[in-house]
C-alpha cells in the first residue's frame, strides 16, 4: 500500500483570489491526499522551504494575477538549487497558452486553466508522483 500523496498548495504573489486553490484543497483531501495549504502571499522562498520541510511529493501553485512568468521560474530555480527537483511542480490560474508552453519548457510539469476539473488535476498528481517514484527506484 503506497503512502498518502503529500501536496503543498501555495499562493505566491499579491493576489488574493483563493477560490480555486480552496476548491482544489477540498477535492485533494476528498481524494485521500494530504494537503498543506500555505495561505496567501507566500514568496517563492517560503514556498520551497515549506515544501522541503513538509517533505511533499508535489507543489501546486495558484496564480491569477498575471505574475506567473516571474513566479513559476523563481520557484523552479529554488527547487533545483536545493536538490529538491524530485518534487513535482504544477499550477493553475489565468495563464495564456503561449505562456503555458514556455513555462512547461522551463520545468513546470503541468498548468491547469479555468474549466479544468478537479478530477483531471487529481489524476495528474497521482500519475506524476508515481512516475517520479519509479524514477527514484531505478536510481
Amino acid at each position: 500500500m503506497a503512502e498518502k500523496i503529500r501536496v503543498l498548495l501555495a499562493k505566491p504573489g499579491l493576489d488574493g483570489h483563493d477560490r480555486g486553490v480552496r476548491v482544489i484543497a477540498a477535492a485533494f483531501r476528498d481524494a485521500g491526499f494530504e494537503v498543506i495549504y500555505t495561505g496567501l502571499r507566500q514568496t517563492p522562498e517560503m514556498i520551497v522551504s515549506a515544501a522541503i520541510q513538509e517533505d511533499v511529493d508535489a507543489i501546486g501553485v495558484s496564480i491569477l494575477s498575471g505574475a506567473h512568468m516571474t513566479l513559476f521560474p523563481a520557484i523552479r530555480k529554488l527547487l533545483d538549487e536545493r536538490q529538491a527537483d524530485d518534487i513535482v511542480l504544477f499550477g493553475g490560474g489565468i495563464i495564456p497558452d503561449e505562456d503555458i508552453a514556455a513555462l512547461e519548457k522551463r520545468g513546470v510539469a503541468r498548468l491547469f486553466t479555468p474549466g479544468a476539473t478537479t478530477e483531471e488535476t487529481i489524476a495528474f498528481v497521482r500519475e506524476a508522483v508515481s512516475k517520479r517514484g519509479k524514477k527514484e527506484d531505478i536510481m
Binding site: 504573489g13 499579491l14 502571499r41 514568496t43 494575477s65 498575471g66 505574475a67 516571474t70
Partner: peptide, 22 residues
C-alpha cells in the same frame, strides 16, 4: 494594480512581476 491595492510602491520587492498587471 496589486501593489497599489496592497500599499506597496512599484519598486518594492513584493511588487516584483505584478506592476501594471491587473
Amino acid at each position: 494594480d496589486l501593489p497599489t491595492l496592497m500599499g506597496y510602491d512599484s519598486d518594492h520587492a513584493r511588487s516584483l512581476g505584478e506592476v501594471g498587471k491587473c
